[in-house]
Computed example of a mutant assay.
Amino acid sequence: MNISRVINTISIIVGGVLALYAQSQADSNPYVLIGGVSLLMFGIYRTSRNIPSKYDKPEESFVKTENEHEV
């Protein structure tokens, strides 16, 4: 597992825990909530940046072309 995946995973987990912690308090600190959500979104963005698009590969056709030898 490379270091980039570790950073992404840690930032998602820590950001989620901070956001949940800030929401569970009666007198919640908005800065902790903003920091947790920002860290969570940072990790999700870095993770999604490495996932390839389904439109990057060439489309496969179900129709096969005829060879000149078969005609």
Rank of each mutant, 00 (worst) to 15 (best):
L40Q: 04
S48N: 15
V32L: 01
S28T: 02
E60Y: 08
P30N: 11
S38F: 05
M1A: 07
P30M: 06
S28D: 02
K57C: 01
R46F: 11
G35R: 03
G15P: 02
I12N: 02
S28R: 07
P58K: 01
I12Q: 08
E70T: 14
S4T: 10
V17G: 01
Y31H: 09
L20F: 13
V63C: 08
P30Y: 05
R49G: 08
S38D: 02
G35D: 04
A26K: 09
G43D: 00
A19N: 07
N29A: 03
V37C: 05
L18A: 08
I12K: 06
E70M: 11
K54Q: 14
N50E: 15
Q23P: 08
N29D: 08
N67L: 11
I34P: 02
V71M: 12
T9K: 08
M1N: 09
A26T: 11
P30C: 07
I12G: 01
Y45G: 00
F62Y: 09
E59N: 14
S38Y: 05
R49Y: 08
Q25M: 02
H69G: 12
Y21D: 04
N29H: 06
Y31N: 07
G35P: 01
S61A: 08
K64H: 04
N2R: 10
Y21R: 05
V17P: 03
Y31G: 03
I44W: 04
F62A: 01
E70R: 14
F42M: 00
V32D: 00
R46Q: 14
E59Y: 11
V71F: 14
I12E: 07
E70S: 13
E66N: 15
V71K: 15
F42V: 00
G16D: 08
D56E: 10
N2C: 12
S11N: 04
S53E: 09
I10A: 12
E60T: 06
L40E: 01
K54W: 12
H69D: 12
I44N: 00
I3V: 13
I10P: 02
A26S: 11
Y21H: 10
V63P: 00
R49E: 12
A22T: 02
N29E: 04
A26I: 06
I34K: 15
S53T: 07
